[in-house]
Design a protein around this nucleic acid. Structure first.
Lengths: 191, 191
DNA sequence: GTCTATATATTGATAGAC
DNA sequence: GTCTATCAATATATAGAC
């Protein structure tokens, strides 16, 4: 078995996706070459095409990884009893990433924004990263008895997304922490 | 004089900047080649370098054009008597661009987001597009007697920016119109 | 100032030995 | 499955005639 090797070092496919994920976040998809990704993953360039037949497939794999990690992250908030507490915890977690967001933007938001410039199916594929959060928040608002749960969810997620935009443009993490505090007050004041 | 020719057709430099502005908005900076821009502006490729010594200089010119147009747009809101009316009018104008935003994103926001991935001076240069709006909004809130004018300005602009993000990702203009209506209510309820 | 032709570099992708 | 060498396409940028 190759288990002992696997434990210390993930397979090449996983390394490639992980390297691509980080480089896409820091430098964007267009400015990241397959050579960059291969080097960061310590995989020979030609070998990349054994795992992904084109760069776009690697982009799709990165989106899938993001989506799965987000599903896991959202699931952890189940430990909070009330939907309101879950929304607060979610907002707090966004705030905790303020340093990274100020430096490189929201990993999901900037990916969606960049891919939205295309005319293939990648914009639709990336949209899942927004839908997961909006749908999750809507469910929490619904559990709070709000009939306008969808609109409230859009208000929360767009508020967070915009705060991350500004924090990134201003290179100022406090913009995100300040705005999330406002959104937490807004959540707590909802009847 | 070449005035008669100029009136019917702007100079090549202006045509190049205008073509680049539109293509950057629709397809992004990285995915727009100088050949694309030259063709759209009806200028031979080699001639581009007479006006701009590098592609980045063209990007800078596009940012300057955006900034100047934004200054003019913000100035038109002076016709409204109260700062509150000016903020409402500003928000209404953002909402009026919902169709374009849903299709291609905010022309300024997506440009900032894309350029923020660089490590040169372009992120800082593009930030002016956010600063102009934040500073203008802050002044309006200040005139309303609010001590927390800066924070309120960030809340308004980030709310708009996030709504444009979601409208773009969902390809749904109504997200922007609905969220701007919420923000208008928020503005009107401020004491 | 204008334009054609082309240099140079980088990239995504492939061929084929091992 | 792995890796080296390389192709083919595209991009920025330049040279030089007019």
């Amino acid at each position: 078995m190759t288990n002992s090797a696997r434990i210390n070092r993930p397979g090449k496919r996983e390394r490639l996706v992980e390297a691509a994920r980080g480089l896409f976040h820091h430098h964007g998809v267009e400015r990241t070459s397959l050579a960059d990704i291969a080097a960061a993953a310590d995989v020979p360039l030609g070998n990349v095409y054994y795992y992904f037949k084109a760069k776009d497939d690697l982009v799709r794999a990165v989106i899938d990884t993001h989506a799965n990690q987000m599903r896991e992250a959202l699931a952890t908030f189940d430990r909070h009893r009330s939907p309101r507490a879950r929304l607060i915890a979610f907002t707090r977690e966004v705030a905790s990433s303020s340093e990274t967001v100020a430096r490189h933007g929201c990993p999901h938001g900037t990916l969606c924004t960049e891919l939205d410039k295309r005319d293939d199916d990648l914009p639709e594929a990336a949209a899942i990263l927004m839908r997961l959060r909006v749908d999750w928040a809507r469910e929490q608002f619904r559990l709070m008895g709000r009939k306008d749960a969808h609109e409230l969810a859009l208000t929360l997620i767009s508020g967070l997304q915009g705060a991350m935009d500004l924090a990134n443009t201003y290179r100022d993490p406090t913009i995100l922490t300040t705005q999330t505090r406002q959104l937490q007050r807004w959540i707590n004041n909802l009847v």
